[in-house]
């Protein structure tokens, strides 16, 4: 699998990463290298194999619908880089 620079740009955009020209080239090469390595998986016929998303078959884990105390607003906002009037403050969203 050959990754191209435009793939790296697309992935970076999806992942909200800003990548420099240098990084674009580096990632293009390294990701190609790694994807080339993982190509070995194609040797295995997995058509009739079901995937393992969970290693053990635990099912139906629920909580009861009972209210527990929330955090204080002070604690909620304690780590916030920006806040105003009890809200988290974020730079403008360009629509």
């Amino acid at each position: 699998m050959k990754i191209e620079k435009k793939d790296v740009e697309y992935i970076a955009e999806l992942a909200r990463l800003e990548v420099s020209e240098y990084e674009k080239e580096m990632f293009t090469e390294q990701l190609s290298h790694i994807l080339n390595y993982v190509k070995v998986l194609e040797e295995l016929n997995t058509e009739d194999i079901s995937p393992t998303f969970h290693v053990f078959p635990i099912k139906n884990v629920f909580r009861s619908d009972q209210v527990k105390e929330s955090l204080s607003r002070e604690e909620v906002l304690k780590n916030a880089p920006g806040q105003e009037k009890g809200f988290f403050k974020v730079p403008r969203v360009i629509e």
Partner: peptide
């Protein structure tokens, strides 16, 4: 594919 291979490994 990787998750299916995981089944084989397991």
């Amino acid at each position: 594919k990787a998750q299916k291979v995981r089944t084989l490994i397991k």
